[in-house]
Nucleic acid binder design. Sequence first.
DNA 1: CCACTAAGAATATCTTAGCCT
DNA 2: AGGCTAAGATATTCTTAGTGG
Lengths: 128, 128
Amino acid sequence: MDKKEFGKRLRILRKTKTDYTMKEFGLRFNLAESTISGYENGSRMPDAGIINKFADFFDVNTDYLLGRTDIHNNIESQEQQLDNKIEEAMNDPDTEIFFKDYLNAPEEKKAELRRFFKYIIEDEKKEE
Amino acid sequence: MDKKEFGKRLRILRKTKTDYTMKEFGLRFNLAESTISGYENGSRMPDAGIINKFADFFDVNTDYLLGRTDIHNNIESQEQQLDNKIEEAMNDPDTEIFFKDYLNAPEEKKAELRRFFKYIIEDEKKEE
DNA sequence: CCACTAAGAATATCTTAGCCT
DNA sequence: AGGCTAAGATATTCTTAGTGG
């Protein structure tokens, strides 16, 4: 099993995201220093409840913590950040409809729209 | 802890993605029927190794299995399909830049752009 | 056939305590 | 201080066996 990778990542997260010692870190979860040591050295593995709490605490996903992926939540790849931003934007109905229409429009209309937008954006910058 | 949500999701995955009975499913992981029953009914929780194996088997992420997110990997919801379409569109550099700029623009510019687009799209329809 | 549950066996964790650097 | 590890205590899981729909 992947106790080792989990331990490595836990240690990195504790060291880079906090100044906690093992003891201090353990206290936040009612765990003994030796327990954290066991985790970080790959000799033990916490149950799913603790894994979840760690993931919440560090704001990473469990797949990262468990060594299944290299993508944690907050150092997201740029693509992912863009996806999230778009997803968020889709919560605005006007924007959603607009994007959908754009995607379905013929290329000439797309190009025309882009030219227009470039124009009004640059126009805005001049005003500043 | 979230044994209950895990159990629900495991059952849904087993039933929708396979025709396995609990016993058959358990055999694939060297687990007894009663163990699977315990999982699905929320009275037990497997260790991280088994969780990982389940995630691999069903091709879902562990955050989904553990109830931390509603997004699994491969059963694409309609929203996800839309995301894919957008992602595809992003392969066109012009479109990508345009979208990014749009998202960062002030609301008034966004609105202006939408009005303009609506105008040229409707204009097109008249031409037909 | 399929699923559920109880009870003892088996396994792994957790704490305490002590030791090392 | 900070971190590591052994050993007993503790807790949870896992299997077996039996019950019920």
